[in-house]
């Protein structure tokens, strides 16, 4: 990709000399490994999840305890002990956390991106950008501990009804965690807006505020939206912070009700960790349910990544 025709011409004679061939094959295997990884993820998740549902189990020749796919997708009770696998109980918690994280990270992230790309001096940028990177580099289990020990008591002093495990604290830390993602992708999109457009704006007598909100943001809108989707997909897959802070009791909470945030619930990722920690037998129903949740999670995040790709590709303003 980084090469042009001339270099291909120049190296054609030596193309198949042993060292060339060896190194090229090695590099190709490295690159192909990523495809193998994806393929094994898909095959593994699909084949194990297929053994979980009664509809698909006969197709893979599996005879054992299974769960109806309709019950899985529409049930609102998650009780592994009594064999109730209603994933909506988990999905509702994930949705609540993702929305809460989005409410925090989207405005802050976009404002950060505008500040960094339009207002900040070079010196300020050289300090703020690494600081934001650190925000994303703190281990998520540490964020979970922060939520549990420092943020939850703070929320409890304001709203005494809040439980020890609650979604509000969990969404707050997940939101803080994904600010850098929204900010850096949006900022890339804003920096890609050509200078001519901005200068045309200034030439027309617009202020910096007008240029930022009237030219830069609209021109970079596709990049900004794709940053939202990527960051939210990250929030969905976020595991340790929510495992520590959100609670361990599966609990269907209506996502449209703001008071849900004061209660604890079990998001999908936390449910997987909980299943793993509870001595499940390999190959049993609980073990296979792990892969069913994993598949749901994978499909969800993959779809969001693809949507974000499509948005950047299709709606990008070409200059």
């Amino acid at each position: 990709m980084g090469t042009d025709d001339i270099s291909a011409e120049l190296t054609r004679n030596t193309k198949n000399a042993p060292p060339e061939l060896l190194t090229r094959v090695f590099f190709f295997i490295c690159a192909a490994l990523s495809v193998v990884t994806t393929a094994s993820i898909v095959v593994l998740l699909v084949s194990e999840a297929a053994k979980f549902f009664s509809v698909t189990a006969p197709l893979v020749g599996f005879a054992g305890e299974t769960v109806s796919m309709v019950d899985f997708l529409t049930g609102t009770t998650w009780q592994v002990g009594s064999g109730e696998y209603g994933v909506l109980a988990l999905v509702s918690a994930t949705i609540l956390i993702t929305v809460g994280a989005g409410v925090i990270s989207i405005p802050l992230g976009v404002a950060t991106a505008i500040y960094l790309s339009e207002y900040a001096s070079t010196r300020a940028r050289s300090i703020l950008k690494p600081a934001l990177e650190v925000l994303a580099g703190i281990p998520t289990v540490v964020y979970g501990f922060f939520a549990l020990i420092y943020i939850t008591p703070a929320i409890q002093t304001l709203l005494p009804d809040t439980g020890t495990f609650n979604l509000a604290a969990a969404s707050t830390v997940v939101g803080i965690m994904i600010i850098p993602m929204v900010a850096s992708i949006s900022e890339d999109a804003m920096s890609a807006v050509p200078d001519e457009l901005k200068q045309a704006g200034y030439g027309m007598g617009a202020t910096k505020f007008d240029v930022s909100t009237g030219i830069v943001v609209p021109a970079a809108l596709s990049g900004i939206f794709s940053s939202f989707i990527l960051a939210l997909s990250r929030a969905i897959g976020e595991t340790m912070a929510v495992t520590v802070a959100a609670g361990s009791q599966a609990n269907f909470l209506p996502p449209w009700d703001p008071t849900s945030y004061l209660e604890g619930a079990l998001p999908m990722t936390a449910a997987m960790i909980q299943l793993l920690l509870s001595d499940i037998t390999g190959g049993g129903l609980a073990y296979r349910s792990l892969f069913a949740i994993g598949l749901t999670l994978f499909v969800l995040t993959l779809t969001m990544n693809i949507i974000s790709d499509v948005i950047t590709q299709r709606y990008r303003e070409e200059y």
């Binding site: 990523s34 997909s233 969905i236 960790i273 999670l297 995040t301 993959l302 990544n305």
Partner: peptide, 30 residues
Amino acid sequence: IYLEEYAPDNKLTRLIDVNISNLAGVPSVV
């Protein structure tokens, strides 16, 4: 190195390319 220096611009390369950016978004539990 393969993707930047060797890869021809064909479907397989694009597949690997898209695949890598999607893999970066796969949750760590998966």
